[in-house]
Design a protein around this nucleic acid. Structure first.
Length: 426
RNA sequence: GGAGGGAUGGCCGAGCGGACGAAGGCGGUGGUCUUGAAAACCACUGUGGCAGCAAUGUCACCGGGGGUUCGAAUCCCUCUCCCUCCGCCA
């Protein structure tokens, strides 16, 4: 959510931001109009309330002085004012609700250095690391490797739960667990993050806080009877940890990391990436979330992104960093880098991390503030998050990049301690 | 799942239709006293909206929302959360 005061004073900048974002349907003009109406109604109703407050006090006073006639007359007048207040209040309620709804549907303006383009074709590779592996045989795709090694069972996943579900078995399941644990351990002991185990189901308000609702409910799973939504990422519960709180001086920055399953309906990408385990309804992900002081936002984004990249490097997986263009930016992000890992079998770059700075956009929605110093007035924090990293795409990359002619797969060195010393999956 | 009891300022806790933004206490800040500190005493001590250049004014907030009333922390409805007992359960 944006600062309405900023919006009032920066109409042109706002208009340009919405154009750049390819979000010209965002109701920002409507929000500004409703804001004006809202304030006008407020001024009216408050004046009336002030009148009634003093009047009502007099009523009591007059009764005490036994001036019943005067008291009743005044009461009558106050009753009329009460009716007027009721009417204006009614309108105010409607206007207010519409205003809030409009505000929740306006995306975050991009940072000045975000490449301007209407869609993902404008994303700019800003960095590439590692050499793509070469083979003296025809490299297989992970769905073949996984099936032959009996570590990915798509057929049975589909039998149990339907399309876009899979079963990991034996070294496959263990590889995922090893990755998840190793990621966590690196972030905790080397990068200064605190581990969080959050709920995987959250209520609507929590989804609003991170910007997943009201606009993107169609990609979420929910309980049919109760107000429970399955998290599409740990970002949701972890960011909301401090909702409606004021973080005391000296506590920032706060770094959290959580490994959770993520649930996504993938409705909008129906038909895309149906093969294998690249795009699935349930996947494991380690997510980093930061709460920081505004001035440090960009530096924190860089270090966050590095925290993710470093994992790829240590796994020996070639990757590239993409600066996401305005038109491809998520609703809440002010700037975003994607990290894509090369998968030699299907010959694709796979997105395994998205690192975003939200400025105070989420903090306003979720009302997360901090006190810059003792006694100072609270201000909104900046929030950031990034995957570090997403599974099972890393599994895909490992299987495809580390495959050998005989169909076996070499386990990257760093994972072996987490795999009971296993060096080759065969 | 059943039966009860709660939610008040940073914390504890009173209030049950007007004098309440809210007694009292604790904590915090400033001051007096003191060589210094403690104690004692005095004062101050919530957040947000709107109008205004400002001083300031005004409105709202006693878990959330709605209602009754001239007037609600106080009465009614509803939701959420917490606690106790019973049942069930990894």
């Amino acid at each position: 959510m944006l600062d309405i005061k900023w919006m009032r004073e920066n109409r042109e900048a706002l208009a340009k931001a919405m154009r750049d974002l390819n979000a010209e349907d965002a109701p920002w003009e409507r929000a500004l109009a409703l804001d004006e109406e809202r304030r006008a109604l407020m001024t009216q109703v408050e004046a009336l309330r002030a009148e009634r407050n003093t009047g009502s006090k007099q009523v009591g006073q007059l009764f005490k002085e036994k001036k019943a006639d005067e008291a009743n007359a005044l009461k009558e007048r106050m009753s009329q004012i009460g009716n007027e207040i009721g009417e204006i209040d009614e309108r105010l309620r409607v206007v207010d609700a519409e205003f809030s709804d409009a505000m929740l549907r306006i995306p975050n303006p991009p940072e000045p250095d975000v490449p301007v383009a209407l869609d993902e074709s404008g994303n700019v590779p800003v960095k590439e690391w590692g050499a793509k592996p070469t083979f003296d045989f025809e490299p297989q795709a992970h769905w073949d490797i996984g099936e032959k090694l009996d570590i990915i069972d798509i057929e049975r996943g589909t039998k149990i739960s339907g399309s876009r579900f899979y079963v990991l078995k034996k070294a496959g399941a263990r590889l995922q667990r090893a990755l998840s644990n190793w990621f966590l351990d690196v972030h905790i002991s080397e990068h200064g993050y605190e581990e969080i185990y959050p709920p995987f189901m959250v209520r609507e308000q929590t989804m609003v806080g991170t910007g997943n609702l009201p606009k993107f409910g169609d990609v979420l799973y929910r309980d049919a009877e109760e107000d429970y939504w399955l998290i599409p990422t740990a970002e949701v519960p972890v960011t909301n940890l401090y909702r409606d709180e004021i973080i005391e001086p000296g506590r920032l920055p706060i770094y959290h990391v959580a490994a959770t399953p993520c649930f996504r309906r993938e409705k909008v990408s129906a038909g895309r990436d149906v093969r294998g385990i690249k795009r699935v309804h349930q996947f494991q992900k380690v997510e980093m979330v930061k709460f920081v002081e505004p001035a440090t936002g960009r530096d924190e984004l860089e270090s966050l992104t590095r925290n993710a990249e470093e994992l790829c490097e240590r796994l020996g997986l070639p990757y590239r960093r993409l600066a996401i263009a305005t038109g491809d930016l998520s609703f809440v992000a002010a700037i975003k880098y994607d990290i894509e890992v090369w998968a030699a079998g299907c010959g694709e770059w796979l997105e395994v991390s998205s690192c975003s700075l939200f400025r105070d956009f989420q903090a306003r929605r979720a009302n997360i503030r901090y006190r810059p110093e003792e006694g100072a007035r609270p201000d909104y924090v900046y929030t950031l998050n990034g995957s570090g990293l997403a599974l099972p795409r890393i599994i895909i990359a490992i299987l495809e990049n580390y495959q050998q002619a005989d169909g076996s797969v070499v386990v990257p060195e760093v994972l072996r301690p987490y795999m009971g010393g296993l060096a080759v999956i065969r």
